[in-house]
Design a protein around this nucleic acid. Structure first.
Lengths: 333, 333
DNA sequence: GGCGCTACCGTTAGCGCTATCGGTAGTCGC
DNA sequence: GCGACTACCGATAGCGCTAACGGTAGCGCC
């Protein structure tokens, strides 16, 4: 095949004008049921697929919402996406995903690419962007929502949690439980701004109580169980008297758990561990690991909600939604 | 902001024609370096973002490759995506992800949506589609690659492994290791056609050796460690004499591993387990679990390669690439 | 009959870009 | 000087669809 079917052809086959065929196919009003059925039938038979590029250009309406995330490999952003999809499902809007790989310049590219398609909305993870990206976001004429993080200066709408506070709360919990020789392990470390904020909040809270971080490892690579295990091993070799380690991700704390299983270390007696995100991964482990739930699904939902409310005309004032992260101590502290 | 900057405005500011501005911004030939620099500078200063909708309509060229996958929650498809991104990176093409949730009608919708944007190529997971989807894929004028699976009748190009064979090979290994009372646990079961093919190949091979499947659980929900643990528990309660269970996913076999950890069952003495996909998740566990590597990254790479070769003009004959899955027994058998 | 409806359909005029072709300088070789 | 070329630039004409408006027909009502 390749006859390149156009709306014109469908109209001709149905014996109506191009305009009527267009209306019938889009489900627009002002078409009789009989005509609509006839056109639809013909379109289906010949396998007509409307050209949305032309449609979008003519109507200046693109039913897409760009979603820019750093990664898909852990389940953290897929879950945000689920929230977005769920909220968008009853509307004509569809999410389009872009992945940056935790690289701000790649992010700028992806944002430029997305905006060049004139979407109905844009959801971007994080508050940190290149200057060019910031300009584009500020000048874009669609609603923009920055998600995940509220510690900073949003360009537009914003839905997230305070990672500074999450880190701080975990520090306070650890201190309350009596731990004093505490370590921190982070991954993607210069690039993952939210992990860095948790680290900072964590250290600040410790410092305020007169405790200094006993050891830390800022690993440039990605989170994985394997790396969690490896870095734990390494840190314990270096600082054998550590009582407790706070990881930037649950994936890493699960790795720590595996290390303890493999080496016979008891949790929390020999080593207490805590992660972040309350990933699915934690469910089903023999032991509940300490973590903080960042409400990823809800963040996605609320972000999509903001875009949707922008659709219905109400040019809502700049929204700033700060959710409270939920710490759970589990059995690993 | 909202002055809606058009190419016309940039051209005017730069004192050149619209056409020259267009060429300068796209990096097309026939523009002097001086002019190009001037236009680029002005475009950057005012924050001009070209409207690709108009561009695509005029040039009939869309540098996007649609990628349709059932899910992003396990790391299996993200890894395919990495392969696609890696292969596409040196080209101007960019992947666009669509998620179907293992629902063929949703898949049809997503495919229609993608094709309506006239992408440069389309990558679809699986060989099973609705009739309408099949027609659209067959009639589409861009290259289409079906991935993951080679057991069936591809519409167009195809890159994958034989899941029938993967299941069969695992069965033969289990028999060789002396297991006779064998169970199967699958998730997303009517919808995940590839898991079903592994199951069929698995059972067929057992049957040929005179062994019947001792028990099986076809679970409709998603794979998760928690479900793996739960379903293992349930199946062992039902069939306490089971020697070995084959899971449709590594995520589930890790759940089984957790169950054994929690209940003190020894692997493989009390229960042997095997999964599928060779997920990252398996790395770092205290014990290597049996699995089959499906070469997900390479599948993505090769699929993207086919799309790319279509770009350069050579309308390659229908490609059919069957990779050999790689079984690894680990320590859990 | 005239007016005001509603229901349906078609004509016109773009949407914001780019392909194509043609044009003007300048340059080179002989 | 002239043909032949290259380098650069601009006017024109769409790409395939839809918004906006203008009909026409049919009906009810005074």
């Amino acid at each position: 095949m390749g006859k390149k079917l156009l709306l014109k052809d469908i109209a001709q086959l149905a014996g109506v004008s191009e305009m009527t065929a267009s209306r019938a196919i889009r489900g627009a009003p002002d078409v009789s049921v009989a005509t609509k059925r006839k056109v639809e039938e013909i379109a289906r038979q010949v396998g007509y697929v409307p050209n949305r590029i032309a449609g979008a250009l003519a109507s200046k309406k693109v039913n897409l919402v760009g979603v820019v995330v750093p990664s898909l490999s852990s389940s953290v952003f897929p879950e945000v996406l689920s929230g977005i999809s769920a909220a968008l499902a009853p509307s004509p809007l569809k999410p389009v995903i872009g992945v940056t790989g935790y690289d701000l310049h790649e992010e700028e590219e992806v944002i430029r690419e997305m905006l060049s398609w004139r979407p109905s909305g844009l959801v971007v993870a994080g508050l940190e962007h290149t200057d060019s990206a910031l300009r584009m976001l500020a000048n874009s004429d669609c609603p923009v929502v920055e998600i995940m993080d509220t510690d900073g200066d949003p360009v537009a709408h914003c839905v997230g949690i305070s990672h500074l506070q999450a880190g701080r709360e975990m520090a306070l919990l650890l201190l309350e439980r009596g731990y004093r020789r505490i370590g921190f392990v982070g991954t993607k470390m210069p690039q993952d701004f939210r992990a860095e904020k948790r680290r900072r909040g964590f250290i600040d809270a410790l410092t305020e109580q007169g405790i200094t971080l006993h050891d830390q490892e800022l690993y440039a690579g990605a989170s994985s169980i394997e790396n969690g295990r490896f870095l734990t091993d390494q840190m314990l070799a270096r600082s054998p008297d550590l009582e407790c380690i706070y990881y930037s991700s649950d994936v890493m704390s699960v790795g720590a758990y595996m290390h303890c299983l493999a080496t016979g270390l008891r949790i929390p007696q020999d080593l207490a561990i805590a992660g972040f995100n309350n990933l699915d991964l934690l469910q089903g482990l023999p032991m509940k690991l300490a973590t903080t739930d960042a409400h990823r699904f809800e963040i996605g939902q609320r972000a999509a909600g903001i875009i949707l409310s922008g659709e219905t005309g109400e040019i809502a004032a700049r929204q700033m939604i700060k959710l409270d992260s939920a710490l759970s101590a589990g059995q690993s502290l």
